Simulated assay, not measured.
Amino acid sequence: TIYSLREQERTRSQSLRTRLVAAMERATQTLGFTPALRMTGLLDTTVPTSHTEHLLATVGETLTNTARHARATSVDVTVEVTGTQLRLEVADNGCGVNPATTRRSGLANLQHRAEELGGSFSLRPNEPTGTIVEWTAPLPTTP
Rank of each mutant, 00 (worst) to 15 (best):
G60K: 01
E89Y: 00
G83Q: 12
D92I: 02
V77K: 08
C95K: 11
T82E: 03
V90C: 05
P48W: 07
R71D: 15
D76S: 14
G94W: 11
E89K: 11
L86H: 10
C95D: 03
V75F: 03
T66R: 03
T84Q: 14
V81L: 02
R71Q: 14
V75P: 08
E53F: 04
L56W: 01
N93P: 06
L43I: 08
L43Y: 05
A67Y: 09
L63W: 02
E53V: 11
T82C: 02
T84D: 15
N65G: 01
H69R: 14
V75N: 03
L86D: 13
V47I: 11
S50V: 12
A70L: 08
R68C: 02
G41D: 11
A57G: 12
T78G: 09
P48N: 10
T78Q: 12
A72Y: 10
G94D: 10
H69N: 07
A67Q: 04
C95V: 15
T66W: 08
A57I: 10
T52G: 04
T66N: 09
E89N: 04
T58A: 15
T62Y: 04
T66H: 03
A57T: 14
T73W: 00
T64W: 07
T64K: 12
T52Q: 15
V59K: 06
D92H: 06
C95F: 00
T58L: 01
R71H: 15
T64P: 00
A70W: 03
T78H: 03
V81M: 04
A70V: 11
V79K: 06
T64A: 12
S74H: 13
T58Q: 08
V75T: 14
G83L: 11
E61F: 01
R87F: 01
T58H: 00
D76Q: 10
L63M: 11
V77F: 02
T82H: 10
A57S: 13
H51Y: 08
S74M: 12
G41T: 10
L55W: 07
H54R: 14
T84I: 00
L86Y: 04
G41S: 10
L42C: 08
N65W: 02
T58K: 02
H51T: 09
L55T: 01
T64F: 08
V81C: 13
G60S: 12
T82M: 05
T82P: 06
L63F: 06
T58D: 14
R68K: 15
T49Y: 04
V79A: 12
N65C: 09
N93E: 13
G41E: 12
H54C: 05
T46N: 06
L88R: 06
Q85T: 15
A67W: 04
L88T: 01
T45K: 13
R68F: 01
S74F: 05
L86V: 09
D92K: 01
T58I: 05
T46W: 02
G41V: 00
R87D: 07
S50T: 12
D92L: 05
T52K: 09
A57Q: 13
H54F: 08
L55C: 09
G60D: 15
